[in-house]
C-alpha cells in the first residue's frame, strides 16, 4: 500500500463523513401541510393556489401572502419572503419550501409549475378544446 493511497483514502473518508452529514442536514422532506405542522422542520409542500381566496403583497416586509390547498385538501395561509413569483397566475400547482409555524406556512421559496412553460399542456385542460390529432 503506497502512502498516497493512505493519505488519499483518509481525505476521502473525512470528506464522506462531512459530506454525508451536510447532505442529511440540508435535505428536505416532501410533506403535506399536516405533516409540516407536526414536524416543525423545513419541508417541501406541493399544492394548488386557492384562487378564490385573497392574496396580498406587503410592501414593507416584501412578503407575498396566498392560500394553498395541499393534496389532502387542507388549506393553509402561505407567507412567502419575496414578491409574487413570475408565472404565478398560470401555475397549475405550486411547490413551497418552508416551515409551518403559528398556523401559517412561512415559505422561503415558491416554485411555480406551469403547464406551458416548456411543455404543451395536456389537451383536455385547454379551454378551447384544442387537442393534438392522434398519430
Amino acid at each position: 500500500m503506497k502512502k498516497r493511497y493512505v493519505i488519499g483514502g483518509a481525505i476521502v473518508a473525512v470528506f464522506l463523513v462531512i459530506g454525508g452529514l451536510s447532505f442529511l442536514n440540508s435535505s428536505v422532506e416532501y410533506a403535506t401541510l399536516s405533516k409540516a405542522e407536526q414536524s416543525g422542520k423545513k419541508v417541501q409542500v406541493t399544492g394548488k393556489w386557492v384562487q378564490d381566496m385573497s392574496t396580498h403583497y406587503d410592501t414593507e416586509n416584501n412578503t407575498f401572502m396566498f392560500y394553498m390547498r395541499d393534496e389532502n385538501d387542507r388549506i393553509a395561509k402561505v407567507v412567502l419572503d419575496g414578491p409574487k413569483p413570475n408565472n404565478f397566475d398560470i401555475a397549475t400547482s405550486v411547490v413551497t419550501k418552508g416551515r409551518y409555524e403559528d398556523g401559517v406556512f412561512h415559505a422561503s421559496e415558491v416554485l411555480t409549475k406551469c403547464p406551458s412553460k416548456y411543455e404543451g399542456e395536456s389537451a383536455s385542460d385547454h379551454p378551447d378544446g384544442i387537442k393534438k390529432s392522434s398519430l
Binding site: 451536510s22 447532505f23 435535505s27 428536505v28 422532506e29 416532501y30
Partner: peptide
Amino acid sequence: SLGNTVEPAF
C-alpha cells in the same frame, strides 16, 4: 433524517 431533496446550501 433523510429527506427527498437537498437545499442549495449543501
